[in-house]
């Protein structure tokens, strides 16, 4: 009987030792990380300079349609009549007929402002983030159209499924508080 008792206490003692050891380990981990922690979380953002408009944004997101949409920086738009993001190359007439449009869903909308300028806006509900218009605009136009993760739609996956396959490796984990890229 006596022997069993000492046996038990030895076990208890070892258990207690490991308990304290693990507590110490966890504690020192938290403390050491705490002083180098970021206050807010991260979001995924596309660096437009690196994006090659590969089209995977439309297909790789865990959401359908994708959380990536085309965004228009009106500030640098030329308001061109012949918009390279809007029209198919070699479109016969510069009208809003579907066969002239580059966008497969008609999400890029064209509106006459004043002669000779046209305003182009994106209907996000229709945009699937395929980047066809972005490609056209960047190749021949001012590059005012760009793809970006829309944070109201994005689920903020711990590992973004698009980032994993993005041809330009353009996805960056960005601190949520300053989701921005400085103008180079």
């Amino acid at each position: 009987m006596k022997k069993k008792n000492t046996n038990l206490t030895r076990r208890e003692f070892i258990k207690d030792l490991f308990h304290k050891l693990l507590l110490l380990l966890l504690g020192s981990f938290v403390v050491s990380r705490f002083f180098k922690s970021a206050a807010a979380g991260y979001v995924w953002q596309i660096d437009p300079k690196k994006c090659v408009k590969c089209g995977r944004c439309a297909t790789a997101c865990v959401l359908t349609p994708s959380a990536v949409k085309c965004v228009h920086a009106f500030e640098i738009c030329g308001y061109c009549n012949l918009c390279f993001g809007y029209f198919q190359p070699g479109a016969l007439r510069l009208t809003a007929d579907a066969e002239n449009q580059l966008c497969p869903t008609g999400a890029l909308q064209r509106r006459f402002v004043e002669d000779p300028f046209f305003e182009y806006t994106i209907n996000e509900a229709l945009c699937i983030g395929c980047g066809k218009c972005v490609k056209g605009c960047n190749l021949f136009g001012n590059g005012s159209l760009y793809l970006q993760v829309r944070h109201d739609r994005c689920k903020h996956c711990n590992e973004c499924s698009i980032a994993r396959v993005c041809a330009g490796r353009a996805f960056v984990r960005t601190p949520a508080r300053k989701a921005t890229f400085k103008n180079a």
Binding site: F117, G141, N142, L145, Q148, R177, T180, N183, A184
Partner: peptide, 23 residues
């Protein structure tokens, strides 16, 4: 505007091939 923090990314590789219109 672009350099201001809190402003999400804008295509910066933009080349101004066409001048901005003066409305």
């Amino acid at each position: 505007v672009l350099a201001a923090p809190g402003w999400p990314a804008v295509a910066t590789a933009a080349e101004e091939r066409f001048p901005a219109p003066e409305f």
